[in-house]
Design a binder for these strands. Structure first.
Lengths: 338, 338
DNA sequence: TTGTACGCGTTATCAT
DNA sequence: ATGATAACGCGTACAA
């Protein structure tokens, strides 16, 4: 029973062109005619077909939103903020969770591309591979529409990015902990993405600068699902049993740090007197655990806002900076002495 | 330079019809021709235009996914699971966060409708109003495409729902706590949606059955942002100062319960010896806080799976039950004695 | 101010 | 097995 513009034009006794003009408010319609057409549209609850629209037009007013896992605390917030910003500016969001498989990503990118979205936002640095060959799909996509990177960067025409300087932020976090008198820190991470490695590098740099001997360096890759804090604390416990000794824990993610807190509690260690903990992302977990977790805020709101801002201007044909970098900030709570 | 099916047909020296047949694998193409066309498609990275496709076809292979706030822990997971299920079955998801304003919701529903989605999933019970008048927009939408409700229900043709019996689950949770010897329970809730009220009713029913006197009943509506555990614990503290006394806290949401735990800790109350706490949703927060939070699992995976299952069959023209109800389950952890 | 007619890219029907 | 062509619904020059 879907009405078409033709049905409306007939019932209103005008041409389809006039109906179109009324719908799109493109002037040159007499008030009387406008009134008449509007009434018919209302009466029949007519809604224009976006597909027919998108075909002739350049823009479909839709943006593809790709991420690995939208249920992840941090990503969920990013997706929400992006979607809100886009919506506020008249754009819809086509959400697509690709998981962490490289091939799958490529397929979904094609699928999204076929929907004729005006742009694609890649949320998270998992999308950028270290091998140039694996990034070909991004270059191809950028050939057709602007590609936006949240918390990643890639140097290529029509690829724009907004990111937090995770390297510096993690470097600051580690330096602070070392300065507070804790040289033996356990570093927990669960992602080897661009951003994940940058954080790791920042951590290591801080150790280097402070001449921390290799024997005091404990860097552990946690390869499990991030939704069980307990399995993380078990992981840390096993690490401690294996001879690692540490008086500080830094997680590349709040969940990892929360696992560290659990470990300390089970072991009866007082926080922060006997062991300090720092997380990353400043998520809701920071205030949920006890004591409240010191964490790095990587200003997600600012990033998403900037990214959409850039996108809108790019779509408007303006020249925009391809890369915008913001600084993270250590939010001090109760798991650290400083 | 987006290729069209016409470009490909020319380069391959065949008709557009043949190219279309190759793309859609609709038989009747000689292996040689198929090979030739496939090669050209690969070479030029041709991607069919989904808008042109959707115009002629019935289906756009896209589902609208509406929710109030996708960054909310529970909703984020629901969105993720739904999107994954849909994607696995060849459907894209158009995500739309409407917030909690009734009028805004209606506008977005129209917008989504214009995108010619095959169905719309309403995630969360905020979409169903108590007044029949306010639900008109749902009836209208259901007139065009099947409407799917996650954790809500509405009796109307073409409206299908999968939900957890929150009433029974909350009733069981409260009954368990009362049985364990705690008659004075503080009930915290932050949503007056269909589901929110069902939980509240389940709680009250348990009190009634156990003849808990009015003086021991404390039901508090928390009207703040759900992302700060601390503001919740402050809220509970104020309640306690206002004369409410209680030895148990039940939250309609894990975050609220986590706030209850914070309150108890600040007050120096031992959990669960001096005060018990139960949450709802069985989210990651349950294992993040200390002690680990007893919580109701409302089997989100099962719900989302069922909903998409129903949707696929409905789209296939089959008759399906309009309402499927599952049971919640109390997951016992360390904030309760039982 | 209003109407006519074409193009957008694809699929499906009908010939061949 | 393949090709020509008519829809699909809308926006927009262009004409009136």
């Amino acid at each position: 029973m879907a009405m078409t513009i033709y049905d409306i034009s007939q019932k209103a006794g005008v041409s389809t062109a006039t109906v179109s003009r009324v719908i799109n408010g493109s002037g040159n319609v007499s008030p009387v005619t406008r009134q008449k057409v509007t009434a018919i549209i209302e009466e029949y609850g007519y809604i224009p077909n976006a597909y027919a629209r998108g075909m002739g037009l350049r823009s479909s007013k839709t943006v593809g939103l790709l991420c690995a896992d939208s249920s992840d605390l941090y990503t969920a917030r990013a997706v929400y903020l992006l979607q809100q910003e886009l919506q506020a500016n008249g754009y819809e969001s086509l959400l697509c969770c690709t998981g962490f498989n490289q091939d799958v990503r490529q397929d979904y990118l094609h699928l999204i591309l076929s929907k004729k979205v005006d742009s694609i936002i890649l949320a998270g640095s998992h999308f950028i591979a270290t091998s140039e060959l694996d990034n070909a799909y991004i270059r191809e996509a950028a050939d057709q529409i602007p590609i936006m990177l949240l918390n990643a960067s890639y140097d290529h025409p029509h690829v724009y990015s907004a990111l937090c300087d995770d390297y510096a932020a993690m470097h600051e976090a580690a330096s602070s902990m070392i300065r507070s008198g804790i040289p033996d820190i356990l570093y927990l991470y669960n992602s080897k993405s661009y951003s994940g490695l940058r954080k790791l590098n920042g951590f290591q740099k801080a150790l280097d600068e402070n001449n921390i001997p290799p024997s005091m360096r404990h860097i552990l890759y946690y390869d499990g699902t991030p939704d069980s804090i307990e399995s993380i604390s078990d992981f840390v416990t096993r690490a401690a049993e294996n001879g690692h000794t540490f008086h500080g824990i830094i997680g590349s993610d709040d969940a990892l740090a929360a696992g560290g807190i659990k470990y300390a509690q089970q072991k009866g260690l007082r926080i922060p007197e006997e062991i300090s903990v720092i997380g990353y992302n400043n998520s809701i977990l920071t205030t949920c655990c006890t004591p409240a977790l010191t964490s790095v805020d990587n200003c997600l709101e600012v990033l998403t806002h900037q990214l959409v801002h850039t996108l809108l201007h790019v779509l408007a044909g303006e020249e925009m900076p391809q890369k915008v970098v913001f600084s993270g900030k250590l939010i001090r709570r109760d798991t650290t002495l400083f």
